[in-house]
Computed example of a mutant assay.
Amino acid sequence: MKHLFKLDPAKQLPNLAVQRLAQSGTDGFIIGGSDGLEMGAVQDLFRTVASLGLPVFIEVSDEAMIVPGASDYLSPMVLNSTDVTWLIGAHHEIVKQYGSFIPWPHVQTEGYCILNPEAKAAQLAKANTDLSADDVAAYASIAENMLRLPIFYVEYSGTFGDSRMVQAARDELVNTKLWYGGGIRTVAQAREMSEIADVIVVGNILYEDFEQALETVSAVR
């Protein structure tokens, strides 16, 4: 797996457009968002995407995202949050309420490091984005060696990131997979990050320049 499209339930794409995404050569889809999440919209989007034959990951950032049937559920822990809610607090509440229904073999925890201070996700999670490459490397090492997380996610949501930061994480990881998301709008940008990260995630450009979003798949093929 090298390429995923991230679909926001709070935004609209025609069903035919989603079908074209499935035919593009991408490896699958993430359904996730930071605000404006409604369970009905999540369910409708999931039904559309699940019928296309590719893996569908649901990122559980809100109760509205608790929809059965996903290939896997992604549980984000914001490692550089200054608010314990986004590190373990929200997770505790979800498990307390829904623990008996959680399909644990299909849950993957993502260790997020959010680096764009203007991103809604950074503001919501109260992320400390004023980090050096050494800081990012340390978070990656914690994800790999202390928390044994399957995924370390360098997130620049809305802007294209600094490849030196991504490389700093890459240098620390052996078993933990490195995912990158944020600001990929061109094939060149997709190729640059795919040469460092195990998986690139393409999201916002879907709603800004759909045809360009399709082209990003070619960077990993």
Rank of each mutant, 00 (worst) to 15 (best):
S34H: 03
A143D: 09
P55M: 02
Q189C: 12
S24G: 11
G69W: 02
A22W: 04
A213K: 10
T186L: 13
T159L: 11
A168T: 04
S163I: 15
G161V: 06
L52A: 12
A219Y: 05
N116Q: 06
S51E: 15
E155G: 04
K177Y: 07
N80C: 05
I196W: 10
L79E: 01
D162A: 05
F29R: 06
A133C: 13
E63G: 04
N116L: 05
M165D: 03
Q97M: 08
Y156P: 06
P55I: 01
L178Y: 06
L13C: 00
V220L: 14
P105E: 10
H92Y: 14
R185E: 15
L37G: 09
S194K: 11
V220R: 11
Q23D: 15
N145E: 14
N15R: 05
Q167F: 07
P150I: 08
E155D: 14
G203T: 13
H106N: 07
Q23P: 08
V220A: 12
Q43I: 08
S218P: 10
I205H: 13
Y156T: 05
P76D: 11
D44H: 04
V217F: 03
A122P: 01
L37T: 08
P68T: 03
G36Y: 04
G25V: 13
V220M: 07
G111P: 10
A197Y: 12
Y73L: 00
H3P: 05
E63C: 02
L115C: 07
M146A: 14
D134H: 06
F101R: 10
F57E: 03
D27C: 14
I30E: 10
A125P: 01
V202C: 14
E144D: 08
G36R: 02
P9V: 02
S218K: 15
G36M: 06
N145L: 09
G89A: 09
I102D: 10
G33I: 07
Q189K: 12
F57S: 06
D35K: 04
N80K: 02
K11P: 00
L173P: 06
P150A: 10
S24R: 06
M165K: 09
T48S: 12
L13A: 01
I196C: 12
I184D: 15
D171R: 08
V95N: 05
N15F: 02
V174F: 10
F5L: 00
Q12L: 00
Y156S: 06
D8W: 00
V217A: 06
L52S: 10
I102G: 10
V199C: 12
K2M: 08
K96D: 12
L37E: 07
D83F: 01
R148A: 15
E38H: 11
N116W: 08
V174Q: 13
G28T: 07
G182W: 07
T186D: 14
I31L: 14
V84H: 10
L79K: 02
V187K: 13
L7Y: 02
E59V: 04
F210C: 13
S71C: 00
A121G: 04
R148F: 15
A213E: 12
E93G: 00
V60A: 09
L16Q: 13
E38C: 02
H91K: 13
P117E: 11
Y139P: 01
G32V: 04
S194F: 06
C113D: 01
W86E: 05
K11Q: 03
A17Y: 02
T109G: 05
